[in-house]
């Protein structure tokens, strides 16, 4: 499932973009060092393959709904994690532009969710050890299933975290997790099954494709992979930390400047004061299964009560009216501009 711009806060979006960009830069560097030139067209064409293959639907047995290929695992198995990650990132970028899957700010999250987990966690830590090098088709199937499920579970969990960190949705942590994880369990099993099938198919039809992947691209063993993961987490933590510190010091940067200019926040909006931000950080860092982020339907959270009173000072009908009238005028003006440009263009 693709994360969407509208559910993100700038800080969360930027944090994941930073992590993703660091990963892209690292992988690009790694590829430059080790790559044989042959990989350039192979990666490009395989990216197009994943894109095309994702558009082919198949029916999922017993449910009647349809599924499609994820691709991260197949790519990792054939190309190794670095190249696979770059290819996944490119596929998601093209999708974000041409299909508007998620949007451009959320692209960082989406590359993270659908690229990092399969390529740098599920593949090296689960698939490789399980499948081994001279794998039988049974072992491949089991390994692909398990790694497919784990990869997607992590991705789905990541969507939950990104949404909660951004604070645009009211969904409580528990409910959200319970919604996302089971759906993606099913999808993960199906995807693992398809991955295994395709890998076994290629293995029987053209064994050299997969064998060459094993022999010529030893995937640089565990050490540098650990470096990648450590490096990425540090990059993400640093940016995330800096940004949230910045956010807590200046309530959302721009809002702060509004307050300065007008003496008080212009909108009936929720300023993100220091307490609020701290609470958010605390929430983000101490998620335990039985801890719920925001108690469902609870009107007065003890921590946020005072702050909320301040947020929503008064329900004042005069203000609402001016808001409504203003909205009508603004929309009318925009439409008028649009139509007049169209009319002028038609004439010329």
């Amino acid at each position: 499932m693709h994360m969407a711009d509208a559910l993100l806060s700038p800080a969360a979006g930027a944090t994941f973009w930073a992590g993703t960009l660091a990963a892209i830069a690292y992988c690009s560097k790694k590829l430059k060092e080790t790559m044989d030139e042959k990989m350039v067209p192979l990666m490009g064409v395989l990216g197009a393959f994943i894109f095309a293959a994702q558009m082919i639907n198949f029916t999922i047995p017993a449910t009647g709904s349809s599924g499609h290929l994820g691709g991260g695992m197949i790519l990792s198995i054939v190309l190794g994690p670095y190249a696979a990650f770059v290819v996944m990132a490119s596929v998601l970028t093209v999708q974000a532009l041409f299909f508007a899957d998620g949007g451009l700010l959320a692209l960082g999250c989406n590359i993270w969710n659908l690229g990092i987990y399969p390529c740098f966690i599920a593949y090296p830590l689960i698939y490789k050890p399980l499948a081994g090098s001279g794998a039988t088709s049974g072992r491949i199937t089991a390994a692909a299933m398990i790694s497919g499920v784990v990869g997607l579970q992590l991705g789905a969990f990541s969507v939950v975290l990104q949404t909660l960190l951004s604070g645009r949705s009211e969904l409580p942590f528990n409910t959200f997790v319970l919604l996302m994880q089971p759906i993606h369990l099913g999808i993960g099993i199906v995807e693992g099954f398809v991955t295994a099938g395709v890998i076994n198919f290629i293995k029987s039809a053209r064994p050299e494709i997969i064998e060459s992947a094993f022999s010529t691209r030893p995937i640089a063993a565990g050490v540098s992979l650990r470096n990648v993961l450590v490096g990425l987490s540090v990059a993400a933590l640093l940016t995330g930390g800096t940004l949230s510190w910045f956010a807590s010091a200046n309530p959302d940067g721009l809002e702060w400047s509004i307050e300065k200019t007008f003496g008080k926040p212009e909108l009936p909006e929720q300023p993100q004061g220091i307490t609020h931000s701290l609470k958010r950080v605390q929430e983000a860092t101490s998620f335990l299964p039985d801890y719920s982020f925001r108690k469902t339907g609870e009107k007065t959270e003890s921590a946020g009560a005072g702050e909320k009173a301040e947020v929503w000072p008064n329900v004042e009908s005069g203000k609402s009216l001016s808001g409504m009238v203003g909205s009508g005028i603004v929309i009318g003006m925009i439409l008028l501009i649009g139509f007049s440009i169209k009319a002028v263009k038609k004439k010329t």
Binding site: V40, M43, G44, V45, A48, V87, A89, S90, T93, V94
Partner: peptide, 13 residues
């Protein structure tokens, strides 16, 4: 490398 990858992908899309 990433930009080249995007261009290749686009060409064969």
């Amino acid at each position: 490398a990433f930009v080249a990858q995007l261009l290749f992908l686009y060409r064969y899309l």
